[in-house]
Write a protein that binds this DNA or RNA. Structure first.
Lengths: 171, 171
DNA sequence: CTGTGTGCAAAGCATTTGCACTATG
DNA sequence: CATAGTGCAAATGCTTTGCACACAG
């Protein structure tokens, strides 16, 4: 849990268009995401709120996440395991990263290499795709899928069934 | 439905390790995917089988898709709408493409531009990630998310709720 | 023949929705 | 105060499982 301050100013502004009241529940859900680099599911967040003595219903968490997503403060990530996860969108350049996911245990790693090359390619691709297909492009997603050291053949976890739920869910 | 011949030879070989018997049902599910460039959900395939007078249960389709996925003949795609879709993996270079998805209606487009640049970047990234994190990388996924001409602000479909189920599911 | 594959019905789960209640602005 | 936000419980919809039967090898 490396703490980082929430960024209420510009973030809350972005929210103004999407909700009328900024409540404690919303603040807490938001805080949980701001304070981590992990990719959390609604349930993960629910657990963390409970651990922090906040008694927020799962429903509210889903609704808040939807809100934050629409406001663009948060990004949905479809991990391979059926549930949707969310990560806080930090300021563009500082936080630009892509994902490396293990199809064995569901672990998600962020990596930040190749920013320069990627950004260039991404920018050019966006241009062409936007023009060619008439799309309004708002985001991109680059991920590599494979087996982590634990799950790869010869790894400690290989052949055997993957871990339990909350285990390899993160980063 | 632009027809392309199934590739029984190498494909069936890949299957030998993953199933004991090659049945009619499996062939049909496989055929449906081979014959299209679209990204189909289990239900989509179910419908197509019914349309083709095959009476294959949804359960079998799910099981077959899982089989084909494990055999590497098919690729899972997590479209934003909650259901998982599948596409046939054609031979590597001939078929290399990435996705452009509309977050409004769920449409998925394949595009094949920038192959050269992308492949280069991808290869280099795979190398580094594999070495740095000990992963065994097996696949990558590059997608751009935005709004299609219909769904973008000013488009015919904008503001209004997206289309019905089978509408924007494809390509 | 002998398991492997299949279908049906029921179970599982993440997510969504209806509705009465609470608290923000 | 009026309305947006919340929680609960029930509903939804995709996917998985248990079990008895059917068929490929």
């Amino acid at each position: 849990m490396a703490a980082k301050r929430p960024r209420p100013h510009q973030d809350k502004e972005a929210l103004k268009d999407h909700c009328a009241r900024w409540t404690g529940a919303r603040q807490e859900v938001f805080d949980v995401l701001v304070k981590t680099e992990q990719h959390l599911s609604a349930q993960d967040i629910h657990h963390q709120c409970q651990a922090a003595n906040s008694d927020i219903g799962l429903t509210t968490i889903y609704r808040t996440l939807d809100l934050l997503d629409k406001a663009g403060l948060v990004r949905k990530v479809h991990s391979g395991d059926g549930r949707v996860r969310f990560e806080y969108r930090r300021s563009a350049h500082a936080d630009h990263h892509h994902h490396l996911m293990c199809s064995g245990c569901g672990q998600i790693l962020n990596y930040r290499d190749f920013e320069q090359e990627e950004l260039e390619l991404v920018r050019r691709t966006e241009d062409v795709l936007a023009r060619k297909h008439g799309y309004l492009i708002r985001d991109h997603n680059i991920e590599f899928i494979g087996l982590c050291p634990e799950c790869r053949p010869g790894g400690r976890r290989s052949v055997i069934a993957p871990e339990g739920p909350d285990a390899g869910t993160n980063t």
